[in-house]
């Protein structure tokens, strides 16, 4: 989706890395099983994180599998389980909306590409939306509200970020107990906030050049396509507060087989991605490249 929510690979133990790859590959296979070959292109790190976050305390079954990306040596994939099915359904729902958004906002060949992808995945989307009607409803509502805010050139960063954050929070609604719904909802709300803000920082210079909406343009006074040092400090202090909220919620979730990897993602991966986005070294090209080559 965005790819900001990923581990710092060098800090993972070998066994952890393999387990992480098992979830990523397992998610990809689950997408193919549930929604056909094309939906595999929607697999991403953010929902791999989600599959790990929602996993139960017991280790799930694994099975070696080959695929087009790993034709010779099979990867040890996570077998179909509840958290993987949830992550796959939500990947399709949110992924499809993102394509639809791209088709509407883009121009020329790019928009056409999005349109074709959107059309091709419509069946998959309908199936996923029927399975997760609450989530699909939350996505549609919040994206519609976000669009209205964009048109009004909303200058409140919190209000704009709240829409995407609320989409992620709604995922917590599927958790089995009230406490877990609160904890997961809080964690995902602030994760969504951070993702939204990172995306805004990442796209700032592009959005200024094309005169597109970006909340940072109206909340701050960027010069030469960048935030001033003072504004950056203010923004990052606010992101730290959201990160603190993630920490607080994460500490209250019990351990599961992925706790080590989740700890890496939260305390190293997200700060590292933030660092790269603010340093301007996280550009769209590199993003795609990393996504494809590191697993």
């Amino acid at each position: 989706m965005y790819g900001y929510v990923r581990p710092v690979k060098g800090e993972l133990k070998v066994a952890e890395f393999e387990r992480f790859r098992g979830v990523y590959c397992g998610l990809c296979h689950e997408l193919a099983r549930r929604y056909g070959f094309l939906s595999r292109f929607l697999v991403n790190y953010d929902f791999t994180f989600l599959a790990m976050l929602l996993a139960g305390p017991e280790p799930a079954e694994t099975c070696p599998r080959r695929c087009a990306a790993h034709p010779i040596r099979p990867t040890v994939c996570l077998e179909s389980c509840e958290s993987l099915r949830t992550a796959a359904d939500m990947t399709v729902v949110l992924g499809w909306w993102k394509l639809a958004d791209g088709a509407q906002d883009g121009h020329g060949a790019k928009a056409l590409g999005y349109k074709i992808a959107c059309r091709a995945l419509r069946g998959a989307y309908r199936k996923a939306a029927a399975r997760r009607s609450d989530f699909a409803g939350a996505v549609e509502d919040n994206l519609r509200q976000l669009q209205a805010l964009e048109e009004a050139r909303c200058a409140s960063l919190d209000q704009a970020a709240d829409k995407f954050a609320s989409i992620l929070r709604s995922i917590g609604g599927g958790e089995p107990t009230e406490d877990r719904r609160r904890i997961t909802g809080e964690l995902l709300y602030h994760l969504g906030r951070i993702i939204y803000i990172l995306d805004a920082v990442d796209d700032l210079s592009e959005d200024i050049a094309s005169d597109s909406y970006n909340p940072l343009r109206y909340r701050f006074q960027p010069a030469d396509g960048r935030l001033t040092a003072e504004d950056e400090r203010t923004l990052r202090a606010g992101m730290q507060l959201s990160h603190n909220a993630i920490s607080g919620a994460f500490a209250l979730l019990g351990d599961n087989p992925y706790s080590g990897i989740l700890t890496n993602i939260i305390y190293l991966g997200i700060p590292a991605a933030t660092q790269a986005v603010f340093a301007g070294t996280w550009n769209a090209g590199a993003k795609l490249h990393r996504e494809r080559s590191s697993l």
């Binding site: 800090e11 951070i194 400090r233 203010t234 990052r236 202090a237 606010g238 992101m239 730290q240 507060l241 990160h243 603190n244 920490s247 607080g248 500490a251 700890t263 305390y267 190293l268 997200i270 700060p271 590292a272 933030t274 660092q275 603010f278």
Partner: peptide
Amino acid sequence: MNQGGQAYRPASGMDMMG
């Protein structure tokens, strides 16, 4: 708020403020 509040962080963890 300016300091980025306070939270638990493991010893090797990084913060968001750089």
